[in-house]
Write a protein that binds this DNA or RNA. Sequence first.
DNA 1: ACCTGAACACCGTTCAAGT
DNA 2: ACCTGAACACCGTTCAAGT
Lengths: 223, 223
Amino acid sequence: MPATPRSRRERPAKPALTREGIVGLAVGILRAEGLHKVTMRRLAQELDTGPASLYVYVRNTAELHAAVLDELLGTLAPPPAEGDWRERLERVLIAYTGMLLEYPSLARSALTAWPSGPHYLDLIESLLGLLDEGGVPRERAAWGVDLLLQRATATAAEHAGGDSRDDWDALGDALGEVSARAHPHIAAASGLLLSGAPEARASWAFQALINGIEHTAVPEPHE
Amino acid sequence: MPATPRSRRERPAKPALTREGIVGLAVGILRAEGLHKVTMRRLAQELDTGPASLYVYVRNTAELHAAVLDELLGTLAPPPAEGDWRERLERVLIAYTGMLLEYPSLARSALTAWPSGPHYLDLIESLLGLLDEGGVPRERAAWGVDLLLQRATATAAEHAGGDSRDDWDALGDALGEVSARAHPHIAAASGLLLSGAPEARASWAFQALINGIEHTAVPEPHE
DNA sequence: ACCTGAACACCGTTCAAGT
DNA sequence: ACCTGAACACCGTTCAAGT
C-alpha cells in the first residue's frame, strides 16, 4: 500500500472549516502576502469551498480582520518589568506600534473594526496597570487609553496603501513653497514641522500624550 | 430652430474634463451618495468617457480623495476671534472633526493619502498661530500639530465602514465580562472606559493633547 | 498630448438550492 | 444547521490604438 503522497505534506494541512481554521489561515496569508490577499474568495479557494461558506463563521471581512489582529497581538512580548512606569508604558506602546507597522493595512482596518478579543484586553490591562502605577487618576487613565491606542493605530495606518513617502514629499514641498505673507507661522516653523527621526517623534508623541492624560482633569459628572 | 432641449438643464451641466471638473463632480457625488460612489468608473460615466481618461488628471483614487478633502476644507468657517487661545484652538479642531464626521470614509482615506492642498495649509497655519499665541515653544507646536490633526482624522475615521456601534457594543460586552482576577484594572475601570458623552470626551482629549504638547520638551538636537 | 474601448484581474455578499 | 455554485453588482488600473 502506498503511503500518503508526500505532496500532501509540502504545505500545512488544509485547515478545518471552522472559525479557528479560517483565522489561522488568514494570518498565514497575511504574513506571506499581505492583507490585500486575505480575501473571502482566496480563503475559500484555499479551503476548497465557495466564499459563501465562510459567512457561517465570520460576519464579514471587517470582523475577520479584527480576529486576525487579535491573533497577532498574542505574539507581542509581555510588558517590560524594569524601568520607570513612564518608560515602560512607552515601551509597550512602541512595541504595539511596531507590530502594527509590519501590517499597516491591518492597522487601517483596526481603526474602523475595533478589536475586542482576549489579547486586546490584555493590552488595555497593561496600559491601565502602568497608568495606575504612575498614580494617574482612574478616570483620566480610562479615557487616556483610547488616546494612546488610537495614536498607535493611526500612526501605523498612515503607512498603509499608496506610497506614504510621496505624500510626505508633497506636503514637504507645499510647506516649503508657502509664502511668509499668507502663512507666516508655517514659514517660521517649516523646518521643524517634518523634522526629527521617526523614533524621536514617536517617543515624544507618547510622552506628550502621557503628560496630557496625567494632568488633564476629566469633567465633573463623569457619569 | 428648436431651442436647446430643457433636459440639458435639469442637471448641472456636464463638468469639463479637467482636474477641477473632476474634483467638483466628485464632491457632488460625495455629498449626494457618499464616498463609496466616488469611483473612477462612475466619474467617467458621468463625464461620458472611459475611466482611463481620468488618469491624465489624477494619479489615482487616493489622490482624488485628497483633492476632494481639500475642497471641503475650504467650506470650513474661519477660526473664531473670541475666547482664550485654548478654547479657540479646541473650537477649530472640533469644527474640523465635525466636518470629517460628515464623511467618515473620507477621513479614513485622509489618514493614508495626506492632503497637501491650500486649505489644509490654512488649517495648519491656524493651529500654529493659536499655539504661538499661547506661548507654546515653536518646536513643540510644530510636532504637536501632527498629534492634533491625527486625533481629529482618526476619530472621524473610526466611524467609517461597518456599524461602529456594533464594535462599541462588542467591546463593551468584552470589558464587562472580564474577570477581576485576570484583568483587575479593567474590572476596576470598566464603567469609566466607555463613559461620558462623545462631546465631553472629544473636548477632554483635545485639552489633554494641548496640555501634553505644551509641557513636553522636544529632544535636544531637533535638527 | 490627449483620449479612448476593451481587457485584465479581481472584489464582497446574497440567494436559492441542496444535504 | 451547514454548505455550496452561481449570480449580482460592481471595482482600479493598464495597454494598445487612435486622433
